[in-house]
Design a protein around this nucleic acid. Structure first.
Lengths: 159, 159
DNA sequence: ATAATTCCTAAACCTAACTTTAGCTCAAGT
DNA sequence: ACTTGAGCTAAAGTTAGGTTTAGGAATTAT
């Protein structure tokens, strides 16, 4: 029992992971409950993450920027190889999937905007004939709770 | 006290408004608490809306499809004339404002997507050099609670 | 006149994505 | 050895956008 280090080469603490990703410690714990990371525990019961979890959580953050839910992100992460540290190629693969969904979302939003243009022209903006009323575009119903398509703030290039 | 009608020509009940807009009665009441409509009350304490509230709530629904929050929608509605029923031109004006914000959002999303392309190319996808890491794009921090950019589902053209 | 709707309020519940708080334990530095 | 900082869990709180429930009151239909 001399000096077995608590934090070995390839294992990092939650605080270190927080520092490297910019995520709050509480957020990382929450992500664990959501199945987005699965750290081991050391003898004292503290979480020990892999270095590759830095990249994993970074991916989560980026996907969130794109508006994907944690559920969807968990699904996509499930396509990474289990018993091997993911390679750059693995990450490229799943990023490509996101790219496809993202294109679809941009297209949907653009279609909706174009319909708005039509409605600005005709001034109807409300009743049954209005193209904006056909509910086949944009977010659909999915049980209780809120549904969003876009955030609440326009992006600013600079303050 | 013979026949003073409870629901006069230009006044409609919450149920009628619900039927005309497709909104749930509970949603309309909620919108009232959020300052999106301000119905009067009849002698019995029941809400009496104006016919023009049909269009008003329709506008709310459309703006929500575009992803605007109720707060933002309330702001925009505040720019309608107070003591006069809004004309088609009034609606066109505020729709045009939305159009501008919408364009900005589409552009921001497209920029973000293009950065993802760059990252697919380089395979970095995580660390400090990554363009996706610069937090100057997409939704920023705004206190506690969730922040979203895009919804959780890709639009489907058909089931 | 009475039954069936519709409407009312207040409070609780729901989801997503977290944060905060309370009360302890573990690990690190001196 | 001991103090401090970091970590732990469980539970409650937060925001947005509503829905659900409970228990009455007003309207409408017959």
């Amino acid at each position: 029992m001399s000096h077995i280090p608590t934090q070995r080469r390839n294992e990092i603490s939650i605080g270190t992971l927080s520092g490297r990703t910019g995520l709050a410690v509480s957020a990382i714990r929450y992500y664990e409950t959501q199945g987005l990371v699965a750290p081991e525990r050391n003898a004292g019961g503290q979480r020990r993450f892999l270095r590759s979890d830095i990249r994993r959580l970074s991916f989560v953050m980026i996907a969130q920027k794109f508006g994907f839910t944690l559920d969807r992100i968990r699904e996509v992460l499930g396509r990474l190889p289990e018993k091997r540290t993911p390679t750059a190629a693995d990450w490229t693969d799943i990023s490509h999937d996101f790219r496809v969904e993202l294109d679809a979302q941009i297209a949907a939003l653009t279609r909706l905007r174009d319909k708005l243009d039509g409605c600005i022209g005709c001034g109807c903006l409300s009743l049954d004939r209005c193209a904006l009323y056909n509910p086949d575009d944009a977010a659909g119903e999915k049980g209780a709770g809120p549904r969003y398509l876009l955030g609440d703030e326009v992006v600013k290039s600079d303050g």
